[in-house]
Design a protein around this nucleic acid. Structure first.
Lengths: 348, 348
DNA sequence: AGAGTTTGCCTAAACGTTTTATCGCGCAGG
DNA sequence: CCTGCGCGATAAAACGTTTAGGCAAACTCT
């Protein structure tokens, strides 16, 4: 006995040991077909003793089934995204899927390679935040291979399922809040390219500005991290010293902006109000705690997962779009407007 | 023409269109074997037109080659980890690997399921931060299946390759720095379980305490996030009001601690000094900027990837251990010791 | 007891590749 | 004119599964 001791155990190994045929082993392990109690026990025993682990690749190849899904995200370092992914994983792992994540860093070429790889390696479904300048050809690629795909956050193409945030509604909410507090000169800070998300958010902001007849809109660019937010805020105040409120494109920028204010001796929530977006963990523990627009990332994650599962089950449904409303969490970085004397400010 | 229009194109489709055999197509696409210029051109053409994408699963099954590697990490929300992963991906993607990430959230059961899944799905290599209470059986599982594996950060088992940080050296550096500034009552804050990492760090801290004859060591628990760090710091000061310096288990905790100090009207870097660990992005832009121990996460990432590649190339090498030294970045949360009058403190 | 049904297992084929061995062919050398 | 050889391509086998179909033996029913 012990012909081929080395090498990983396969169905054939188990079959040989047990003295039954390969399909029988397969059926026992998967609980299909008619099998006598006796054989079942023998097989299970042998499988356990050999530490047999099925080769999912071979299985998938034959059966077409595919329980591996890919998450393609633009920036894993962003805590909001990371939490969305958490929610996704929760639900999908419960359904027996293996979720594997990949970070495009908003580079369309990298993204293309990664998607190609996902296709080659046979992912059964995709959750995707399209990179900034995703070309049309990338969508064609996915369409050609008919992989069930749900985009999220960035709503780029209507042919795919989508889960997102009611961005315009959210920023309108924030801007209204500020207007109600008496602010009349309100800027929008954050984002760089005119991404779809940002476009929507700015639209919401501008609608309130013009609806309330406030000072003309002022949009200022910034990358999505604290340091950039800090620098941008300083520049912005230099440009518009009479500013009393800012709606930010994300919490990272908002927190950076607060740091900038502190550095200039201006108190966030007093002389200048700041509203963030995302409600990342840090927002609640910052000093002062950040007023922000909150959409539970885990909820988005679960919604995403559910949408993908539905799509996998019925690939021919018309595309679905779900948009979740944001909630305004009023903390301490917003307060009644206090007219500002545009003071001369020096660095540091 | 157009027998089977639907369905994904395979080698056989391309072969039929071109009028050559399947192996010929395979050889052309992979650049092996002897092929005439004429056929080569024909095949490439057809492949392109059909949008043919090789089925990597089938290929891997036949050839045994395996260009998919898995990253198993304990907490993706931690920015340090996320940056390590960035470094890994950089290098491995260049080598034609697909890197997929999975988050255990330090749950050993989940980790087990995920590793099982990785084995079933045939990952060719693993980069792994073992979860807190990883049982021995998990290591057996990996050993049985002989998957090239490199652990990082948590050095749990000597039979596997490892890339880590010289933890004891690092905290000793920090503690020495504080002692040099005149501090005599220095606490260690952060971490909960006695993980290997934490054990090493505390050892480094204690060695300096006893070497310099300072006040006896004081170790205080905290989860690894800002809020927990904040609460822990308050509790710690309550316990030891004469404290003048803290070495922290991570930047998140350290930043939380600084928030706590600010809340109590104590200036970090003046009345109480704080040293962090990791140098996450926030550390540099915090107010005041955090003195911290820095190990370039991307460097770790690249080292990790390199180690794994070596291991895959030669599976029979004896296990390798690489440890990177941390560097002390002195910013503004540490300063000369000022004797503290243990003031009565009330909440908020 | 014979016909029909159920039970328990097996054989054969298929999934899409890669690999190994082989084959026909034209050509150079003896 | 036969032999040997390099070239270009092919046929067949293999990877580890799952699925469909089949076939004896053991039951059930009249």
């Amino acid at each position: 006995m012990g012909r081929k001791v080395s090498g990983k155990p396969t169905l054939s190994t188990v079959a040989k040991v047990t003295g039954v045929s390969i399909p029988t082993v397969s059926q026992v392990l998967r609980g299909t077909g008619r099998i006598s109690e006796e054989t079942r026990a023998k097989v299970l025993d042998a499988a356990r003793q050999l530490h047999y682990v099925p080769n999912q690749r071979a299985a998938a190849m034959r059966s077409g089934e595919n329980r591996e899904i890919g998450v393609v995200i633009n920036q894993l370092l962003n805590p909001f995204n990371a939490e969305v992914v958490s929610g996704v994983v929760d639900l999908l792992e419960d359904h027996g899927y293996l979720v594997s994540i990949v970070d495009t860093r908003d580079d369309a070429d990298r993204q293309d390679r990664q998607l190609q790889a996902f296709i080659r390696h046979g992912r059964g479904g995709l959750l995707w935040v399209p990179a900034f300048d995703t070309p049309e050809s990338t969508f064609d690629l996915l369409a050609t291979h008919g992989i069930p795909t749900v985009t999220f956050l960035r709503h780029v193409q209507r042919k795919l399922d989508h889960v997102g945030i009611r961005n315009a509604e959210a920023t309108a909410l924030a801007t209204t809040h500020l207007a109600d507090l008496g602010h009349r000169r309100i800027a929008y800070l954050g984002g760089t390219d005119m991404t779809f998300v940002r476009k929507e958010r700015i639209a919401g902001y501008e609608s309130v500005i013009s609806g309330r007849g406030l000072e003309p809109p002022l949009v200022w660019d910034s990358l999505d991290n604290k340091l950039a937010g800090l620098e941008a805020m300083i520049a912005l105040l230099d440009e518009a010293p009479d500013l009393t409120a800012v709606v930010c494109n994300g919490d990272m920028v908002a927190l950076g902006a607060c740091l900038a204010l502190a550095k200039l001796g201006i108190r966030p929530g007093r002389e200048v109000s700041v509203v963030g977006f995302d409600d990342i963990q840090d927002a609640a523990v910052a000093t002062p705690p950040l007023t922000t627009l909150s959409v539970s990332p885990r909820k988005i994650g679960r919604k995403l997962a559910r949408t993908l599962l539905d799509r996998i089950e019925d690939p021919d449904m018309p595309p679905t779009v779900s948009e979740l409303s944001a909630e305004l969490l009023i903390r301490e970085t917003t307060g009644p407007m206090i007219p500002r004397v545009p003071a001369k400010q020096d660095g540091a």
